[in-house]
Amino acid sequence: MASTRQPNSIDSTAFAGGRTAAAPAGSMRHLLIRMRRRWQLYLLLLLPLAYIIIFNYIPMLGAQIAFRDYTASGGIWNSEWVGLANFERFFNSYQFSRLIVNTLSLGLYLLVVGFPIPIILALSLNQVRTLWFKKTVQMVTYAPHFISTVVMVGLILQMLNPRFGILAQLTAALGLAPASVMSKPDLYQSIYVWSDIWQHMGFAAIIYLAALTTIDPALHEAAVVDGASRVQRIWHIDIPGILPIATMLLILNFGNFINIGFEKVLLLQNPVNTSVSEILDTYVYKVGLASPTLDFSYATAIGLFKGVIALIMVVVANSSVKRLGQESLW
């Protein structure tokens, strides 16, 4: 490590001389000296480290209440140990299969529809030669990304309102009866997914647009000289050009697809659609924090079950990205 040359050179040269003779005990001392020299960096890390330990690692220890019967008096460490009872209760409950189906189907729907659309948008934008038009489309399609989830759901409800809103006007124009789509459980997932695409497609396209700019223009010039059409150039140059990043994102999204943005799921819920809108995360919240009998242990067990599956999926996804020779998540 050449960069560790220090201003207090007497110290370091003296030590460098003794280094060859010193055995393991010496390298330990060496490490301590190097650490002491960087004490200011550790001082800086103190606060963020405390933060991450308190709000991330202590909850990981706290997750052990999934294996206990949590009581206020016993707390995390002294409540009665019940082993896998909470998990068994969940696996045997009538909610189990429904929650799994709802979570997986919503996540998969979002992945299957939400993955290709930003790519199509980016490829399409990349073909635009009129700069002001391209900039306008980009500006407008990025904007909804910054709208809050609460406002977004409010907007959905207003747009789909059976009395006014765009849907009411469309049905009226077509001479149909006004439809109350929010009270149709069958449509819940579609409303969730397509409004998500409306909100985020422009933003998700950014990464592909950036990847498209890294493609060597000489490829396109050569193709033009050879008489390739635009479609052919998209097919044979643009798509192969963004394929590596698209593959990586697909795998990472797949690893992540169980982690659905549950705030929006919760906000879009109403008494009519809970049979399809209840997913693992919202159920954890309801059991643990929003029911008359707060069952911390049971809710934690469900959360832990999901967290472990999510971890396995992300790790598998990331190692497959690595196997493909791409930059991985870590």
Binding site: S3, I58, P59, T300, W330
Partner: peptide, 28 residues
Amino acid sequence: DLPGRRFLTVLFFFPMLFSGGLIPFYLV
């Protein structure tokens, strides 16, 4: 030149992959 940089980095990034869940976080 920060000794233990790799370990510390992993310590900071790992919570992206796994968390104790909503309830233990609430309890803290």
